[in-house]
Simulated scan of single mutants.
Amino acid sequence: YNPSDNSIIVSGKNQGLIKISWDDNLKWIMAPKRNWGKSGREGKGFETKPYLLTAVDSEGKPYDRAVQDGNESSEEFDFPWGMHSPSIMPDGNLLVFDNGAFRYFENNVHYSRAVIYKINEEDKTTEQIWQYGKERGPKFFSTIVSDADYLANSNNILVTSGYLKQGTKLSAKLVEVDYETGKEVFEATLDFKSEHGNKSGSWGQTDILYRSERLELRY
């Protein structure tokens, strides 16, 4: 929820991020531009393409078609894939955990990250201004859940990569990162007992770390 304009930003894991006004009007879509058409279950609604944000660099120049369509990324920009936990920063920018599931519409590029985007609603553009996690590669890759929070008291970002699977080993990581420098100031690894905590085959019983919060110690 964004109190500045009474709007809601929704994370559609397999579609993208969308902004909806309080009176239920679509404001924008942040997602690769590939394969968008008319809205609705049967594709008989309004055209969605005019709402898609264009990815631009720090000078406002659009990236090439391959980046816009999500077929590749640049060093300075990548769309979020299978993302979770969008939130508004104090400066109005958008923080989200980019899981990276099926990045570039494939399943062979594996990294997750916390990422911040600056959105120009009038120009329908989005600029990536900060990220952490890509450099850690597959060992920080979480296909599901996870979280990213801005910590106002310290100006840090708390990043939760909640489902790290390396062979038969299952774990999660909590990393607090200095927003200005990108350096880690705290890190913890949680090793889960088993992939299925109650020994059943139900996916819903898989050990995961869904979210994490930094709490103020008052006592």
Rank of each mutant, 00 (worst) to 15 (best):
Y179P: 01
E76Q: 08
G70H: 04
G167H: 02
F192I: 01
N153T: 12
L52K: 11
E187C: 04
D78S: 06
N155F: 07
G182S: 06
Y51L: 13
F102S: 12
A31F: 03
L170H: 03
E195S: 14
N153W: 07
D69S: 12
I116Y: 05
G12C: 12
A55N: 09
K124V: 07
N93H: 13
G43C: 13
V96P: 07
N107P: 02
M30P: 03
G82D: 06
A31I: 11
P80H: 06
E59G: 15
M30T: 04
D191F: 00
E180G: 11
S200L: 08
V96H: 07
E47P: 08
W22L: 00
N153V: 08
G45C: 09
I129C: 04
E187I: 10
R136H: 05
S200W: 00
P3W: 00
G197H: 08
V159S: 01
S39I: 13
I29C: 11
D191N: 14
N6C: 00
E184I: 06
Y219F: 14
V96W: 09
D78C: 02
D24G: 00
S142N: 07
H196N: 14
A172E: 05
P50V: 09
S11Y: 01
Y111C: 00
K118H: 07
K169G: 00
S85E: 13
K33M: 12
T181N: 07
E75Q: 10
K49S: 14
S200I: 07
E187Y: 01
K169L: 08
W22C: 00
Y51R: 12
L94H: 07
D123P: 03
L215N: 13
S11N: 13
N107Q: 08
S154P: 10
W203S: 11
V185P: 10
D178A: 09
K33V: 05
P50M: 04
P90Y: 05
N71M: 09
I8A: 10
M83Q: 15
R65L: 14
K27Y: 00
N35C: 10
L170I: 11
D91P: 11
H196A: 12
K27Q: 14
H110E: 03
D207H: 06
D69V: 08
G82V: 04
A101Y: 08
E76A: 06
S154G: 08
K61F: 04
P138Q: 03
I116A: 09
I29F: 09
N14Y: 03
G82T: 03
T126H: 04
V175G: 01
N108K: 09
S87V: 11
K19W: 01
L17G: 02
A114F: 00
V177P: 09
N198S: 13
W22F: 00
N120F: 00
T125D: 12
L209F: 11
Q128N: 08
